[in-house]
Amino acid sequence: MFSYRHAFHAGNHADVIKHLTVIATLQHLQQKEGGITIVDTHAGAGLYRLDGDYSETGGEAKDGIFKLLSQLDAASAKKDAKPIPEALQAYLDMIASFNPNGQAKFYPGSPFILHAMLRKDARDKLRLFELHPTDSKALASNVAQLDAGRSIMIAREDGFESLKKLLPPPPSATGSKRAMVLMDPSYEIKSDYGKVAANIQDCLKRFATGTYLVWYPIIARPEAHDLPKRLRTLSNQSQKPWLNLTLSIGRNTDGSSAGLSASGMFVVNAPFTLKDKLREAMEVVGPALARGSGHSWAVEHS
């Protein structure tokens, strides 16, 4: 049950689209004054070394953040270089903030990205859940260095179950109730697909106005194929706007299909500005991360 460790995959192409979407979504939500309860149901360790033993084993950042940075550096050197889209620049700035020496040695997971985006007046609250014993301990240790005070709560609990007690969220100082939830389990256990759909359905019953983000792998498994369809159906039934971003980087140049090559981000109650911002960003990210044959990206929305 506990064999999955995100450290092996930190900074890969899936992280790029996941965190690109998370940042763009939260930036939009924070345009309003009311505080936000932010929940990460599968938080991981929070911060990862890209030159560490785990990430070196898989080397997945080579087809993710490292490749993206390299391609952008090459593009910026051209005379007809185009400006970097707003959402992509926000993502790049976030990564750079954890690497002040200019070299990408550290990759922030969702907990550290979300913490960095909390507004300084403590109106936003971050709730992190991680069940893996090693990652939960690492998360607590990493977050302790942030001196975050009461703005962050960490629990070694099942995020799917613990989420229920947080919705609806408590009212902010202005009386408004707002929430953003990120679900990105490993899907190592096949039942995770059904749990995600069931949790989104439950979330919409408990707090219909929340914004819910789901990362999912695109693999040859019926459950994986059906998940975005189920999320789309749940959104439509609840009359909530949705967005589905997918990225396939294509096959390895040697023709093999080893490792994850495609994934998606589904957003329920997606901000109306998100589709245009992500399309602009993906027009750069998609070609930059493409390899071999079969690469593609798409931004679908209600």
Rank of each mutant, 00 (worst) to 15 (best):
M1V: 09
F2E: 01
R5W: 05
A7K: 05
A7S: 13
V16L: 07
I17H: 09
L20F: 07
A24L: 09
T25K: 03
H28P: 00
L29D: 06
K32M: 10
E33K: 15
G34E: 13
I38Y: 05
D40Y: 00
H42L: 05
G44C: 06
G44L: 02
R49P: 02
L50G: 04
Y54W: 11
G59D: 06
A61N: 04
K62W: 07
D73H: 10
A77W: 01
K79D: 15
D80W: 08
Q89F: 10
L92N: 03
M94C: 08
P100K: 12
Q103S: 13
A104G: 06
P108K: 01
P111R: 03
I113P: 00
L114R: 00
L114N: 00
D121T: 08
D121R: 13
R127T: 07
F129Q: 01
T134Y: 00
S136T: 00
N142T: 04
V143R: 02
A144K: 15
I154Q: 09
S162K: 10
K164N: 04
P169Y: 11
P169V: 10
P170Q: 14
S172C: 13
G175H: 10
K177I: 08
L182A: 00
D184C: 07
D184S: 10
P185T: 03
Y187L: 11
S191F: 03
G194T: 11
I200C: 07
Q201H: 13
R206I: 09
P217D: 13
R221F: 05
L231K: 14
L234I: 15
L234K: 10
Q239P: 00
K240A: 14
P241L: 12
L247H: 08
N252V: 04
S257K: 13
S261F: 12
V267K: 01
V268Y: 04
N269V: 07
K277G: 08
V284W: 09
G286V: 06
P287Y: 14
P287C: 14
R291V: 03
G292L: 04
S293P: 00
H295Y: 15
S296A: 15
A298L: 15
V299M: 10
